[in-house]
Simulated assay, not measured.
Amino acid sequence: MSAQQSQGIQTLLEAEKAAAKIVQEARQYRVQKLKDARTEAEKEIEEYKKSKEDEFKKFQASRDGTTSQAQASVDKDTEVKLKSITESYGSNKDTVVQKLLDRVTQVKPELHKNLRKA
């Protein structure tokens, strides 16, 4: 019976080795599938990123013309307003300076309206 028992133990050991080998192969297969999935996901991410960058560049190129036109319009308006302010300054500066001098030099002392006569 010991030979038969030895043979049974030997069979169990071989089956255990085979099972361990199958488990190891399954783990390696799983690891390989995870690597493949990561690689595939990175490729998809890069493709998506590239497509969005191209889309943004097209959008930006389509808006560049309107941006430069808007900038030119703002520059023109600024120039017109600056010219108007400069002309207004030139025509009114003498009058303003004279009014300031008159106020400073012609002081009329008066009692404050809140001051009561005692």
Rank of each mutant, 00 (worst) to 15 (best):
Q71S: 03
E110R: 10
Q24Y: 07
L82Q: 09
K50Y: 05
I22D: 15
Q69L: 06
V104C: 02
S51T: 10
K35C: 01
Q106D: 07
G65D: 13
G8Q: 09
S84M: 03
R103M: 08
L12I: 09
G8A: 12
S88P: 00
R30T: 01
T67I: 11
T78M: 03
Y89M: 09
S62E: 13
S62N: 15
F59T: 08
S68E: 11
A19Q: 14
L101V: 03
D36Y: 05
V31A: 10
K76C: 00
G65P: 00
L100S: 04
A19P: 02
I9R: 15
L13F: 00
E110I: 05
Y48I: 04
Q32T: 06
G8L: 04
Q28E: 15
S73C: 01
E46N: 10
Q24R: 12
S73M: 01
V107T: 09
T105C: 01
Y48M: 06
A26W: 02
V74I: 11
E16Q: 08
T78A: 08
N92Q: 11
K58L: 00
R63H: 13
D94Y: 06
K43V: 07
R27W: 08
T78R: 12
K35E: 12
Q69Y: 05
T95S: 07
E87Q: 15
A72D: 03
Q69F: 03
K58I: 06
Q5M: 10
L82F: 06
D77P: 02
D54L: 11
N92H: 09
V23Q: 13
V80L: 06
T86S: 13
K93W: 02
K99Y: 08
Q28P: 00
L100K: 06
K49H: 07
T66Y: 02
Y89W: 14
Q69E: 05
D64G: 03
A41K: 08
Q106F: 01
R30W: 04
R38V: 00
Q10D: 15
E46Q: 15
K57M: 12
K99R: 14
E25S: 05
S68I: 03
D36F: 04
Y29C: 03
D54I: 08
K17R: 15
K57N: 10
N92S: 12
V107K: 12
T78E: 05
G8M: 04
I22H: 11
V31R: 09
E25T: 13
A20W: 07
P109S: 07
V23A: 15
K49F: 04
Y29N: 11
Y89S: 03
K35V: 02
